[in-house]
């Protein structure tokens, strides 16, 4: 396995671990929903998130991948 793939694996394991914490510690930590609500609560962050979504979609469906 190449170096880069090992880092990605570590990030994936970290994400899974965090998802486990979120599942069992509801109400005491910031959930995905809470983060999403914060990011979409005003115009500026909403436009930022939509722009990132648009760029990601263009890259995935119209470019290299």
């Amino acid at each position: 396995m190449v170096v880069g793939a090992i880092i990605w694996l570590a990030l994936a394991i970290g994400t899974l671990a965090w998802a486990t914490v979120l599942t069992f510690a509801r109400g005491t930590v910031l959930s995905v929903r809470a983060v999403a609500q914060w990011l979409l609560s005003a115009w500026f962050p909403r436009i930022l998130v939509l722009s990132a979504w648009a760029v990601a979609g263009w890259h995935v469906f119209c470019q290299r991948p």
Binding site: Q37, W38, L40, S41, A42, W43, F44, P45, R46, I47, L50, W53, A54, G57, W58
Partner: peptide
């Protein structure tokens, strides 16, 4: 899809944001 999303956000979100950008900051 991108144009539709931005249009929907602007039209559907007019005067319906939870808080101002300043409050968010």
């Amino acid at each position: 899809a991108v144009l539709s999303a931005f249009a929907a956000a602007i039209i559907g979100g007019h005067r319906r944001q939870q808080q101002s950008t300043r409050a968010w900051r």
